[in-house]
Design a protein around this nucleic acid. Structure first.
Lengths: 336, 336
DNA sequence: TTGTATGCGTTATCAC
DNA sequence: GTGATAACGCATACAA
């Protein structure tokens, strides 16, 4: 049975209120009393009971981070950064893996954890638009651009523009047959839609013909999907001389297929990805990519949540959209 | 203000005890009452208050998983699998990133979260031996082999034997100058020590001379360390014709350096890693490796913890060590 | 089978 | 500056 406020109070010869004051850094405590209480706390190894505290204050000091999957290096990195940012506010982060399942995401938004978490940072995959607003009362910050302007804050890079930048880079290399890997059909695939739009805009801007046969669809954004999509692309009549992949994993998979089939990268086909995960810095060839300012995204997400959680004036302001910078990173896979 | 037991009871015209019974699936409730209560629960959207429940039962339904870093694909995968396994017991997993910092690991073991979590699954990096037993009362399952036999359960593969298997594979290829990347000096680097021991055993078993100059030390197990270590190895007088890397990230970094310097893999240097992360299946060349049965490790870790947590007879048994299988996966990087 | 009453460890409102 | 005491929402011993 761990010691409680009561035990500390008894040992220090004061009331529990005084101990509580000391624990919570209340200022109006005489130095003498404070010292005595502190001594008792140390001696007993007192640790405040989180449950009791939460029951009273309705605050758990825990925020949830919901991502589609931790296996994806981008989300893993994001998770690590958010944990770090949260730590500076002494928040604990509960990481939730949705596996992109609509039902799980819905539960999250509905607030099935309502009592347990103070806020939610959410990177939705299966949910979009209004469904995201059927929310409980838990403050939420969305990661990734939304087309719809709902009641939640969100922070993201300009996906469409970033995709256009990547595509422009390929066109600027003199490539005339620029393919895309990563298109998705379902309505909630906002990221895929936006990157496709950026790709198309840049293609047309370069005076190239829009060719649907150069666009490969994928189920998910994994290496295996990229590999399969690339194989399909190579089957088609018009063979591309460049590929924009909607994320780095797709690109790494695509490169694998190309090399396997004796196609040189970047000489025959230039490949660019998206996310700037660490893998791309050590692959052969190293991977050109679009680098979002992930550290900044993480920091801003936590900051926005903190503002909502604070009882300050900003807590009830209109939802904000924060745009974060991205930059092009040119490496071997397009440096031909 | 979310509804409580009281509100549900009022609406259903019963006492809170009855509602509580229904919520907790107590069997002796008349079908009629149960239906009425359930209706009220649904209508009000009642969700039990986790804090209050925990205050009473001293159980939070949350277990912590502490890993050095989520960015590492192996730990990310492990985390995902453990979350899945825990889900089947309706446990929530709180993921803690220690960054390999001794202080953080110490806090964990000391139980600074004591009140908040029911159990801990821990993959220590900076702590070893006795320090791991200075534990609180929170049940703990250790991931990764320990030399010392402390008071906690642990589940792991036979690191030494697995490392020997990898090295034997290289020797079996006829390579005579087999290097190792991943040695570490500090005492708590149990994994590195064991893999080095396995490597050495296999080297001597093959009748090769033990050459300390073929062993490269690393700070951490990242791609960059592998790349740097390989570069150092190439500088030394005796150039290796094979390398056993203590994990896949090191191997991928090493391969990058080799290819960059025009050394062919596997023709000139065969490379094998450890962990079987997804990257290795799509890299060029694809990566030979030792594959631990990670899914089984995850499942067993959760099972062991469950036994400790259960109030059954097994709860106070002596600590168990569970050994999990591994297998060699031969891919292009050694298939020369 | 169901209801009443008590306490889990805190914080917060009042007195003193 | 400090102490007594009432909640917070739930589970459960005990009664009915």
């Amino acid at each position: 049975m761990p010691p409680g406020l009561k035990d500390v109070a008894a040992r220090a010869g004061v009331s529990i209120k005084t101990v509580s004051n000391v624990v919570n850094g209340y200022t109006h405590v005489s130095a003498d009393t404070r010292a005595r209480v502190q001594e008792a706390i140390d001696a007993l190894g007192y640790i405040p009971n989180a449950a009791a505290r939460q029951l009273r204050t309705r605050r758990s000091g825990v925020i949830a981070l919901a991502v589609p999957e931790l296996q994806s290096p981008y989300f893993a990195e994001m998770a690590g950064l958010i944990v770090q940012a949260a730590e500076r506010r002494s928040w604990t982060v509960l990481i939730d893996q949705t596996d992109g399942q609509a039902e799980r995401e819905r539960n999250l938004v509905a607030g099935l954890r309502r009592h347990a978490i103070d806020g939610l940072i959410f990177s939705p995959l299966a949910l979009a638009g209004e469904e995201l607003s059927r929310g409980g009362d838990t403050p939420m910050v969305l990661l990734g651009e939304r087309v719809w302007h709902g009641p939640a804050d969100h922070v993201a890079i300009d996906n469409t523009e970033a995709a256009a930048d990547a595509t422009r880079h390929l066109c600027g290399l003199g490539r005339r047959s620029v393919a895309a890997i990563g298109a998705q059909d379902f309505a909630s695939a906002v990221t895929a839609h936006q990157r496709l739009a950026g790709y198309r805009a840049a293609i047309e801007e370069a005076g190239l013909a829009w060719d649907p046969l150069l666009v490969a669809r994928v189920e998910r954004f994994h290496r295996a999907d990229g590999a399969a999509a690339m194989a399909a692309l190579l089957q088609r009549p018009r063979r591309p001389d460049a590929v924009f992949c909607f994320n780095d994993l797709l690109a790494l998979g695509a490169i694998r297929t190309l090399l396997e089939q004796g196609v040189r990268v970047p000489e025959d086909v230039a490949v660019i990805g998206f996310d700037d995960i660490e893998d791309g810095r050590f692959s052969t060839p190293t991977l050109s990519t679009v680098a979002p300012d992930t550290a900044r995204i993480a920091r801003l997400a936590v900051d926005l949540l903190a503002e909502r959680l604070g009882d300050g004036p900003a807590a009830s302001d209109a939802p904000r959209e924060v745009r974060v910078a991205h930059r092009l990173v040119v490496r071997e896979s397009t440096a031909g």
